[in-house]
Design a protein around this nucleic acid. Structure first.
Length: 485
DNA sequence: GTAGGGTTAG
């Protein structure tokens, strides 16, 4: 049986998507993750409990994962949904859903919940699995707790999850991708015999050093690899090549490439993409184009990533018109541009002030069946705000919230900073409301953002609203201790 | 979720 409340909320959700047929109240299709997510965001806990127990929705792991993914930027609501559904009389969560929930809790830095979920997962014999630990350790590292991450990795087996070379390499990669490369390297040296570190381990560490622009260290790792009897692979060479470009050593990159050619080393689409992108970013558009053409002549098929790299280079160092020519060329050849392709073009258009064309590309993207993502919207909102077109920025923001894409931390920061561009008191109120909204959605704004808004409110004599902001600040643990509410 | 290429702007 549907509760009256349920019907009411469904109808209001439906209202957003279809303005006609308001008299017929229909529940959402069982697989309508978007409508269900919006419903979850909207209703209070009591209503949600009631709704989740109704039989009108056929819960499947796939549907639950889709909803959790969609509510990614609304952590508290996502976890509430997950917990309530766990008490469903017939449905039981899958391991993948647990992983999602753990990821969300960890991102909120709610470690108590993380470990409670791990315990429940284990009790239900669903894990934890190596992926679970990859998620947890990654979150600890990015929260500035790499030592804790190491301890967690080393204690995996106590949770019934055995460590092996795969999980070791995954953890090294987690550390490296979070720029804790020295730590990864030290750990590798200590444990490489125990886990039988392989080519993959060395590639991960070398790539880590390249990431932090320490190419000489990456080369040392390469030497060490050879000394220990492991042959570098094409992946290793691609890592080093990319490292040279990343650290601005274009000449060295070129020499390295020539050496690869001299040694008749096979070069693949990744090698070429790296070089096209590398030269382009260095401002050598002619050389980038030359390498791109050479690739075609040699019969190596560019990937969508190759086109994305080339298009981005043209946008940044040449002009948007030429970039769009390449975009059209790739479509003509039968490639399907992805969201990165569209984002790069849209950014290029925004950058030269062609906001209307950028909006047309946003529509084109949707028409072509490519869903705009949060980055797409953030770029457009950012450039509208930079131009002082706050209303247009807010318009795009509202469109994304009501539709298929939910705002993230960047979206809020961009909008709130935009509000300070012009000195209007009503902007300050909107900024304050956005700030409260983001806190309620589990984001943690910077102290700077709170202070900016509080100062503005106190200067304009708006004590009451300032108190409300302080309460929000207290809720997300960003309030200095000497404050008392 | 064992490794390499493509997404902001400051």
């Amino acid at each position: 049986m549907l509760s009256p409340n349920y019907r009411l909320h469904i109808s209001s959700v439906k209202y957003k998507f279809s303005s006609h047929n308001l008299t017929t109240i229909t529940p959402p299709a069982a697989d309508d993750a978007t409508a269900l997510s919006n419903l979850i965001l909207k209703v209070d806990t009591k209503t949600l409990i009631h709704n989740l127990e109704t039989k009108s929705v056929c819960w499947t792991p796939d549907l639950v994962n889709k909803i959790l993914k969609r509510l990614w930027n609304h952590g508290p609501k996502a976890l509430q949904f997950f917990n309530l559904l766990e008490r469903h009389p017939t449905y039981t969560h899958s391991a993948a859903s647990f992983d999602h929930a753990i990821d969300i809790a960890a991102r909120l830095r709610n470690y108590k919940t993380v470990w409670a979920l791990v315990a429940r997962m284990r009790k239900r014999m669903l894990g934890p699995n190596p992926k679970t630990f990859a998620i947890i350790t990654e979150r600890y590292v990015s929260a500035g707790k790499p030592d804790k991450a190491v301890r967690v990795f080393l204690s995996m087996h106590e949770y019934g999850c055995q460590q092996d070379l795969n999980s070791f390499n995954t953890f090294l990669d987690v550390l490296c991708k979070s720029r804790r490369v020295e730590m990864a390297y030290n750990l590798f040296r200590v444990l490489k015999r125990r886990f039988r570190g392989d080519t993959v381990s060395y590639n991960i560490i070398a790539n880590g050093f390249c990431l932090i622009k320490r190419t000489p260290r990456a080369l040392e790792v390469l030497r060490e690899m050879v000394e220990s009897g492991l042959d570098p692979t094409l992946k290793t060479y691609n890592v080093i090549l990319n490292g040279y470009f990343k650290s601005g050593q274009v000449k060295e990159a070129w020499q390295f490439l020539l050496e690869m050619k001299r040694r008749k080393c096979e070069m693949d689409v990744v090698t070429y993409t790296t070089v096209v992108h590398g030269f382009g970013v260095a401002g050598e558009v002619q050389k980038a184009r030359q390498v791109f053409d050479e690739m075609l002549e040699l019969g190596i098929l560019p990937s969508v990533a190759t086109y994305n790299a080339f298009i981005q280079v043209l946008c940044k160092k040449d002009n948007v018109e030429n970039a769009i020519l390449v975009f059209e060329e790739m479509v003509k050849k039968g490639y399907t541009p992805n969201s990165t392709t569209y984002n790069v073009v849209i950014r290029g258009l925004c950058h030269v002030g062609k906001m209307d064309s950028a909006m047309e590309y946003l529509d084109k993207m949707k028409r072509d069946g490519c869903d705009p993502n949060v980055q797409t919207y953030n770029v457009i909102i950012r450039y509208y705000c930079d131009e002082g077109e706050i209303e247009k920025g807010l318009g795009v923001f509202e469109k994304m919230g009501g539709g298929e894409c939910l705002p993230n931390l960047d979206t809020y920061n961009v909008l709130i900073s935009g509000m300070f561009g012009r000195k209007r008191s009503d902007d300050l109120m909107v900024a304050g409301k956005l700030l409260i909204e983001m806190v309620d959605r589990g984001f943690v704004p910077r102290k700077f953002t709170f202070n900016r808004i509080l100062n503005g409110l106190l200067l304009t004599g708006n004590q009451d609203f300032a108190k409300e902001i302080l309460r929000a600040q207290s809720r997300c643990g960003r309030l200095p201790r000497h404050f008392r509410l």
